[in-house]
Simulated scan of single mutants.
Amino acid sequence: MGKVAQIESLPLAESGCEIPAHVAIIMDGNGRWAAGHGLPRIEGHRRGVESVRRTVRHAGERGIRVLTLFTFSSENWSRPKSEIDDLFNLLRFFIRNDLAQLKANGVRIKVIGRREGLPRDIFDLVRSAEAETAHNDGLILQVAFNYGGRDELVRAVRRVGEKMLAGELDPADFSEKVFEEHLDTAGVSDPDLLIRTSGEARISNFLLWQLAYTEFVFLPVCWPDFDEAAFDAAIAEFHSRERRFGGLFHG
């Protein structure tokens, strides 16, 4: 499933380095960062928002086409209500304060995950952000919010089943391509590179279908410390891999 890359040993070559078209990131370690600095967890989340801004900007500068960020898991509802409220407030703050700049930079926002049960104002903010950036042709910022990979698969299967029952889809025509058209990520390519920060080496119910042939890089830094150098280190590690997609190595 990949390895924990040592950031200092992976400088990014400025020429000839393959840039992944789609990078997905599990932004882990806000709470641990805060604890390590003797600060409340919310401060870790605030610093994490700053890392989001750096990461989005750097992805655009590197020519990455799609950046998917795992911001709030469907399992995160089990956290204390005060922390959930803090996370929602940070999302509100980010959209209201950064949307104009993202729009001006040509970023297109796409939000994946279950929308039922979200606070009404969050639902409206998400829908507005998508609508206002729908015609942008720059970086696609795909935000996984209230998202779980298994839940996404179940919802996709349900939609396919409903179409079959209604006679809108012949079972004989069902295929991987048809199934992908019913996923939250429909129309977006699968990730080439998955980065997880904080040194944890698991995918935590994230993009279970889409990660079939993705390269995994696990970095030892907590998300608030994830910067341009760490991003470039992950890209350099990706560049060093031999991607075979189930075929044989020809070297």
Rank of each mutant, 00 (worst) to 15 (best):
W33D: 03
I95S: 08
P40T: 11
A104Q: 13
S74W: 10
I122E: 01
L248D: 11
K177A: 15
E168Q: 15
R65M: 12
D98K: 09
N30I: 03
L91A: 09
H58I: 08
T68Y: 03
P20K: 02
S82E: 10
G161L: 13
F218L: 14
A186E: 15
H58Y: 11
G167E: 14
E176V: 14
R53M: 10
L12P: 08
N89R: 11
D85M: 07
D85I: 03
A234E: 07
I84W: 06
L99I: 06
V221R: 05
S74T: 15
A59Q: 01
A24D: 02
E132K: 07
T185W: 12
R41Q: 05
N30Q: 09
F226L: 15
R46D: 00
V154P: 07
N89H: 12
D170K: 10
I19V: 08
S73H: 04
H135L: 06
R32G: 01
A233D: 05
E83Q: 08
V217W: 00
F93G: 09
E8R: 11
L219M: 09
Y147K: 08
A156P: 14
P119R: 01
R32M: 01
P119Q: 03
G31Y: 04
A166L: 12
R57F: 04
R65I: 09
W223A: 09
E83A: 04
Y147I: 05
V52K: 02
P119T: 00
E116P: 00
R127C: 07
G251V: 07
A233Y: 03
A134K: 06
T133R: 05
F145I: 10
L12I: 08
F218S: 09
K81T: 11
A201M: 15
L91E: 09
F70K: 00
E200D: 13
L99S: 03
S51K: 04
R79T: 12
D28G: 08
T68E: 04
D151P: 05
V217P: 01
V23Y: 06
Q142D: 04
I122V: 05
D151R: 11
N30A: 06
V188R: 02
G246P: 13
A230I: 01
C17G: 04
S15G: 09
L248W: 10
F206N: 01
A35C: 02
D192N: 08
H135S: 11
E180K: 14
V111K: 02
Q210H: 06
A186S: 15
G138D: 03
E237T: 12
D170F: 14
A59T: 03
